[in-house]
Nucleic acid binder design. Structure first.
Length: 271
DNA sequence: CCGGACGCCTGTCGGC
DNA sequence: TGCCGACAGGCGTCCG
């Protein structure tokens, strides 16, 4: 579910509640996420002050002097700050307890998410070390994409969803960025000109920024840290709009499967 | 090295 | 109404 804008929305939502706080421990109701939640998570966190709340791609990183939490929301995860006594729902697997009587609560029905702890620089963790550039950081542009695409025959949509190419672009925003750039999602990545790659990079950046400003996209179960949905779904041009008229030319939006993922595009505007 | 398919989970929705 | 298959925002792994 959550792509970069939803993770960034979550980060912005939780950061003010974590600033200046200290963890008192953790309550883990179900350790069985994508990887097991550390058995000693509570002991690792107890007494540790929060020194940072960062995002890298779709990963959240919460820093303490002893080490860093690495959190991923998978397909269905969300984080909320609630009073620690709030009765948990069936999929509220982990509470990170804070010294103000509240907790950071992870809900993840499908359990594709992740809560890890590392004592080292989290950016060198095996899950993070190969991530590509942050699309919202200065310096991200078409030249980078174009260079990496040399010789690649994979569909451009698969290419920009590869976290080693660019971090944080998932299925929704890949569809939307390709529409904005006028590029057919199945076009081989290596057969896109430098100029069009520059358009694509700009489109990726723009759609992510707009989505963050709207609080992310809620298709079904994404909520921000207050439990509220994001409203960027209203602004989606193609994703989930099969058969509807293209907002640019009116031609019906088409749906195909690329890389086992649902893909929507305008066959007239995207080549 | 590259590309494509699969599996991990649960919930929901559409069709019969 | 009820059941069953298809599908869902991610991503690591395996195979050819």
């Amino acid at each position: 579910m959550p792509e970069l804008p939803e993770v960034e929305t979550t980060r912005r939502g939780i950061a003010p509640h974590l600033a200046g706080r200290r963890f008192t421990g953790a309550r883990v109701r179900n350790r069985r996420l994508r990887r097991p939640v550390p058995r000693d998570l509570s002991r690792l966190l107890a007494g540790q002050p929060v020194t940072g709340v960062r995002r890298r791609g779709k990963y959240l990183v919460i820093d303490t002097p002893a080490g860093s939490l690495i959190i991923h929301l998978g397909m269905s995860g969300s984080l909320r700050v609630v009073p620690a006594g709030t009765p948990p729902g069936p999929h509220d697997h982990v509470d990170l307890l804070l010294d103000d009587g509240r907790c950071l609560r992870l809900r993840d029905p499908r359990r594709f998410g992740l809560v890890l702890f590392t004592r080292r620089d989290p950016l060198t963790h095996p899950l993070l070390k190969d991530l590509g550039p942050e699309p919202l950081a200065p310096g991200f542009g078409g030249d980078d994409l174009w260079r990496r695409a040399r010789g690649r025959r994979t569909a451009i949509k698969n290419f920009i969803m590869d976290g080693r190419v660019v971090a944080g672009v998932g299925n929704i925003y890949a569809n939307e960025a390709l529409f904005r750039a006028g590029i057919h999602p199945a076009r081989p990545a290596g057969r896109i000109s430098r100029a069009r790659m520059a358009r694509l990079a700009a489109a990726i950046r723009a759609v992510l920024e707009e989505a963050i400003a709207a609080g992310g996209t809620t298709m079904r179960d994404f909520t921000d840290s207050q439990g509220k949905p994001g409203y960027f779904a209203l602004s989606l041009a193609v994703y989930g709009r099969e058969g509807e008229p293209c907002p640019r030319c009116g031609h019906p939006i088409r749906h195909v499967v690329i890389g086992q993922r649902s893909t929507c595009y305008c066959p007239r505007c995207q080549r």
